[in-house]
Design a protein around this nucleic acid. Structure first.
Lengths: 253, 253
DNA sequence: CAGTGGTCTAGACCACGTT
DNA sequence: ACGTGGTCTAGACCACTGT
């Protein structure tokens, strides 16, 4: 029963290096992540079984399992007993659960409709440059849309995308409701995480007109930075929401 | 190498019962949770080592580890290599990280001061009865306080507690800033989780006066239901926050 | 040094889903 | 019947901590 030595491959350092060692399962996770990022495995695909991966990577099944479990915890994979391990898909139900935190005060959450007001290309603002990691030569795409629940407009939002990550965006004839599925299918960009900041603001005259509420009415402002699997920011989102009959929910554990 | 049969103890059912089996590690977790809930293990205490627990419970070390890992993931325990496993304490730094999601727009988050405006006992409202699971004979304690960051009042909040879970609350001379530590030390109640709902509202005349802002100014309303280790609701919190220079942050993963 | 949790392996059986 | 992931065990070595 030979015991494999820890050899962080690709990161050769001096022999006496006392720090910076990664557990084997973390190295396995990184290898599997690379296969996801590079598009070798696409959403919906069935992965090789644990035993096969273990032989491929020359580690034990238990170590592969620990890596797969960690990726499953991050909603990147889906495991089903008796069937296998699949690459997670950006379906509405999962997006709804993972990235959409608004629910009606009475009743269960559902995915809102959306109507695009405008799409345009522009030079990024300073904030956009900073949050998306762009420089002066870069360009962004801005999309403004209104989203409704049960026919009632509930929020107006602006999406900002870096043009270089979304080539030919302007060739699109329609922009679907579920943009994360679009990012995945059209450009192979998987949204893996996001940070949101919430504030209460007064409705601007413009937003009020679009939403059909009074100017100055309190709106919930949700600012999102969404990141891809390599943790690079790929979308800014700035939603202004009428929270009269709707709330944003958070679980603290 | 005998293989232990799964015998969900304490839940005897018909022999042919095909459903409702719990994995061993989940049963171990429940046993350990009972020792926490019943106060055998108190915050800060060093738990027996994995090997000792494994012998006590007649399972392998790996199974104990899976239970301990799961409790550590829920912030109930703290594990330190070389030292041991400790019961988590409600210190400010942990509360700040786990239960306090407000940060200044510029700078790092910190725990706000608080000044109590009033404490009173009363009959619960219908909402309170429903959310705390009380009936007509029960009574609640209400605390209203203002919290400040860097001298600036940022929010006013109302706490509602069921009197029967907090006997002699009115004997308290002072109510400390960190009430979760108070709940733990005085009544042995550990807050394990909470749900929050956020909305944007207009400041009432009364809140505006107390906070020193304009009536009608948009405020972030945060409604919290906090639960103990047995998942029973033990605190309602209704915070109205000036979010001009402050935001509520959420990570979506 | 001894003791702790952290990692890794190997092999077994179980529950589930497909064939 | 077969292959999958899920659970459980046992034993080994490593890294960290305090003596």
């Amino acid at each position: 029963m030979e015991n494999k030595k820890r050899l962080p491959e690709g990161t050769e350092t001096a022999a006496g290096d006392a720090i910076g060692f990664k557990p084997l399962y973390a190295q396995v996770r990184e290898r599997l992540m690379r296969r996801l990022v590079e598009g070798e495995w696409v959403p919906g695909m069935l992965l090789p079984s644990e035993m096969v991966l273990a032989r491929q990577l020359n580690v034990s099944q238990g170590t592969v399992r620990k890596a797969l479990d960690s990726m499953t915890a991050d909603n990147l994979l889906l495991r089903r007993q008796g069937r296998g391990t699949y690459v997670a898909e950006p379906e509405e139900s999962r997006i709804l659960f993972q990235f959409f935190r608004l629910s009606p005060d009475e009743g269960s959450p559902s995915f809102p409709d959306s109507r695009v007001l405008s799409t345009s290309a522009a030079a990024p603002t300073n904030t956009e440059k900073q949050q998306l990691g762009l420089d002066d030569t870069d360009e962004v795409i801005r999309i403004e849309r209104i989203r409704s629940l049960a026919g009632e407009p509930i929020l107006i939002e602006t999406l900002t995308l870096p043009s270089n990550r979304f080539p030919d965006f302007d060739h699109l004839t329609i922009i679907p409701n579920n943009v994360y599925r679009l990012y995945s299918e059209r450009w192979g960009i998987t949204i893996g995480s996001a940070e949101e900041r919430l504030k209460a603001i007064a409705a601007s005259a413009r937003d009020a007109a679009k939403l059909g509420c009074d100017p100055g009415e309190p709106l919930l402002l949700i600012s999102r930075v969404a990141r891809d699997l390599e943790n690079r920011p790929v979308e800014l989102r700035w939603s202004r929401c009428i929270s009269r009959n709707i709330h944003y929910s958070v679980n603290l554990r």
